[in-house]
Design a binder for these strands. Structure first.
Lengths: 201, 201
DNA sequence: AACGCCCTTGCGGATATCCACAATAGCGCC
DNA sequence: GGCGCTATTGTGGATATCCGCAAGGGCGTT
């Protein structure tokens, strides 16, 4: 499998081609667009990889595209390409959460390394997202009562105490507790605590 | 108690005074230095608060001071003051982990707000550090055996299983387990798991 | 009405945990 | 040698947890 896909957006065809050649020689798939508008039209939330984005372009600027993508919930890491006159804009970009940026003319190896880092960041993000999504799905499958019991189990409380607090019999708590473990896919309260501590915040 | 201390470093006395007046009017203590060297001489690792640092100064620049402080293990948030000609340097600063930066001439309210945010960040950092330090101290007080038992308890294993794995009697495991709880200041395996999951990584 | 889902509870037994009391043993230190 | 710390184990009892078996009620859907 490939190292990931780099989406190149620059209105200078020569640069797109140079980037494309450089990255492909490092085993990175590439796709190119000549304008921010063009990329936006093709963008979908399932898109994976990273962006290499010229910050200065005709019509819609790279920064503007970045803002729109952010609004669309896009989380792909973005590497901006900047001329050294565009630096104030680059500052904005970084503060807004751009992954990195490089000044033109760029050093080939350096840029490729950063793209690779960006692709790795995207993968990590999705790994974390998958795990979190799985946990959320499991949590959503709990009934209200089960959730109440789980919260108290996580508080380290004994079944007896939980029963008192909820005004139900201990046996009932045990049943809920066991359902919680089953639904959450764990076999002990310890595992549950680690699952939730590791997958949230 | 005060909102925190802002350390002002700028070779322009007029700016130092203006900053100092502004911040004090917002309840923030200030201390001023006219040079990076002067601040470095006074710096100690116990220093708390944040820095407001002119990025362009005689002799040692703000960025250079920032690098040295980082090497010294200083984690105070740094807000850089930059003229708009210094922007490329500001970019470097942000990439190196500066907390924020503002361009001169600055808007009073905006700058004060950022200083307040920086002070809050410093407090949070120390809160986290204190908790982590406390946990590490407790962990260090565990004997080797206790640690071995704890690791397995966190794995959700039953005392019986742990006893088998370590080749000792269940009773011994129980003793270690109880010591671990006592030393770590928790009363159940669940609490322990949450303590370690929340304080590490 | 019948079915499914959830909440509820009781009984009883197999396991596990928690702990006080008690004891043996190695190791380093004064 | 005595003292303290750590590791080790045993006995026995009070609690807790884990679970299958059994069963009643509420609620919404078909």
């Amino acid at each position: 499998m490939s190292a990931g896909i780099a989406h190149l957006i620059d209105d200078d065809e020569a640069i797109r081609d140079a980037l494309s050649w450089l990255l492909r020689s490092r085993g990175i798939e590439t796709r190119s667009w000549g304008s921010a508008e063009g990329f936006l039209a093709d963008y979908g939330s399932a898109m994976r990889g990273c962006l290499v984005l010229d910050i200065r372009m005709q019509a819609m600027s790279g920064l503007e595209l970045f803002d729109r993508l952010t609004q669309l919930g896009c989380t792909m890491p973005v590497i901006f390409l900047t001329g050294h006159g565009d630096v104030p804009v680059a500052v904005q970009a970084i503060k807004k959460g751009a992954f990195d940026f490089v000044e033109k003319p760029f050093n080939d190896n350096e840029l490729a390394d950063r793209v690779i880092a960006a692709l790795a960041a995207d993968r990590d993000l999705w790994l974390g997202r998958d795990r979190k999504h799985d946990i959320e799905t499991r949590l959503a499958s709990l009934t209200v009562r089960e959730r109440e019991v789980m919260d108290r189990v996580l508080g380290g409380k004994l079944n007896k105490v939980i029963a008192d607090e909820l005004g139900i019999a201990m046996r009932t708590v045990e049943v809920h507790r066991s359902h919680v473990f089953e639904k959450m896919g764990v076999r002990s309260a310890v595992d549950l605590a680690r699952l939730l501590a590791g997958g949230e915040e």
